[in-house]
Amino acid sequence: MALHQWFIPHKDTHKKAHLLSWEGLVIYIMIFILLQVGFSIVGYTKPGVMGISSSVDYKKLIELTNQQRQEMGLNTLGENEALNKAAQLKAQNMFSEGYWAHFAPSGKTPWDFILGSGYKFTFAGENLAKNFYNSEDVVEAWMSSKTHKENLLNPKYKEIGIAVVEGVLDGQKTTLVVQMFGTTDIVTSKPLVDVGGQEIEISPKDYLGERQLVASVNQANNVVPLFDPYTVIKTAGFSIVAFMTILLLLDLYILRKRGVFRLSSHHVAHMSILSIASAGLYFTNPGSIL
């Protein structure tokens, strides 16, 4: 099989280039599946080798949070050391128990960390984020989610604590952001915590009970990832779409030049779905909130 038949239509039969036919599409799909499988294997065998290098800064997050509250005419939140410690303990617990949720598999709750750090709240809340490249994207994502936005803009809160902790989660270097809100003013008859948009009433037993949390806050795990899997996937995706678009345009041009008609699938339709996929690749990011 001649090499040029992989790129341009056959000169006699005018059959489309192999890299545009179903065989070519299977090759592209296989490349992506192999990339994903490869990343899973690397994550399992060499935890921390891949992941995101983030520039999220906790001071900037407090500043942006207060900016959002001020724009809504609300009070600004003061940084609280106990809430900072609670957020730090929560983030480290997520790495040590290997979970991404408001509640730990061992049964630890958000209020365990808040009360455990010595903050006797009457109303508190928690927002989580992971794998964002910068602080602006984190706050933007919270503001785009109804429940997180309501929590961030809750007028009952007076204080804030934030932790940005790096570590290895599911084999990948991950940056976790824990945002804790609270007030010690009497704003409700019973202590409440806003978790994932749900207000949970804390029982007196839970509120007053002794807590055995991590004794001290450990140093953040300073892992430097060798590569960012999301950038690799994005680059590979854009390359394949660009390559296919060039081949589709080349195919159209050559057929027109030869003045032949070929019974085949519609190039404009393929280019449309590929351009939508490219837009998706461009505008989405690996960050997620909880």
């Binding site: 036919s21 179903w22 599409l25 592209y28 992506f32 995706g237 996929a277």
Partner: peptide
Amino acid sequence: EYLLTAMLGLILLMG
């Protein structure tokens, strides 16, 4: 060809 192109579009984003 259409099915595989649609599949490719989805796999690109899911990654």
